[in-house]
Each structure stands twice: as structure tokens, then as C-alpha cells.
Design a protein around this nucleic acid. Structure first.
Length: 109
DNA sequence: CGGCTGACTCTGG
DNA sequence: TCCAGAGCCAGCC
């Protein structure tokens, strides 16, 4: 199975109302890098069963892929799923992150 | 087989 | 916090 297929498989596991980063997906797929994850998403066809909109960058923001339509659409889709953006256009991983990114930084719980 | 492309991430200032 | 530069690898001519 090609690397990108594995990336899509991971992306399909992201539940509604949650988001994951390219880096997180890359860490789940052996031999995958953050770029590959992004490139794999970029290679997705117009019609796909992969929730690509739930995949964003490590900054919790949507990458400016395309002329802007893609990112705008992605934001709309995420908001429709219940995900909220702050005034800086960023998502709070502590609340909408698929995996608890905070546990990697500091496990205080 | 060689070269170009791409929705990223990290580090330093 | 924002900007610039380097590293990386699969896919498609």
C-alpha cells in the first residue's frame, strides 16, 4: 500500500468535530513526513471520502493552499462540524485536537 | 532514470 | 509574535 494511501487511512479515522496536524499523521504512518502528509492531501481528488478539512498545520491554522478558496472552504467545513477558530484563525488543540497534543508538551494531568 | 513540484516543520533573529 | 531559510521524500512528467 502506497504511503499516501496510509495517510488517507489515518485521516479517515479523524472523528467529526476534531482536527489533526500533518505532523501528527506523519508520526502515525511509518516512513512518513509532515510534508508527505500535506502533499498527500493536495493529491486528493475533488470527490473523496477523506476528511481532508480536518487536517491542518502544527500552528493550528489552515495552510493557504490554492488561491484561497480551499482554505476558506476548509474553514467553513470545520465550523460546520462544530470547530471554532480564535481571532487569529487558529484552532485550540486542547479542545478540538484529535490527539491531545498537550500531553506531548507537558503531562500535568 | 533524472528533474520538478508540493495543503509542512523546525530553528534563529 | 512574525519573517526567512533549510531539510525532506513520494509522485508525476
Amino acid at each position: 500500500m502506497p504511503i499516501y494511501e496510509e495517510i488517507y487511512a489515518i485521516a479517515r479515522q479523524i472523528p467529526v468535530g476534531k482536527v489533526a496536524t500533518y505532523g501528527q499523521i506523519a508520526r502515525m504512518v511509518a516512513g512518513c513526513t509532515a510534508r508527505m502528509a500535506g502533499y498527500a492531501m493536495a493529491a486528493l481528488p475533488d470527490k473523496t471520502d477523506v476528511p481532508w478539512q480536518r487536517v491542518i498545520n502544527s500552528q493550528g491554522k489552515i495552510s493557504p493552499h490554492g488561491f484561497g478558496y480551499g482554505s476558506a472552504l476548509q474553514r467553513e467545513l470545520l465550523i460546520a462540524e462544530g470547530i471554532r477558530f480564535d481571532l487569529n484563525g487558529r484552532v485550540d488543540f486542547n479542545e478540538f485536537g484529535w490527539l491531545d497534543l498537550a500531553k506531548y508538551l507537558d503531562k500535568e494531568d
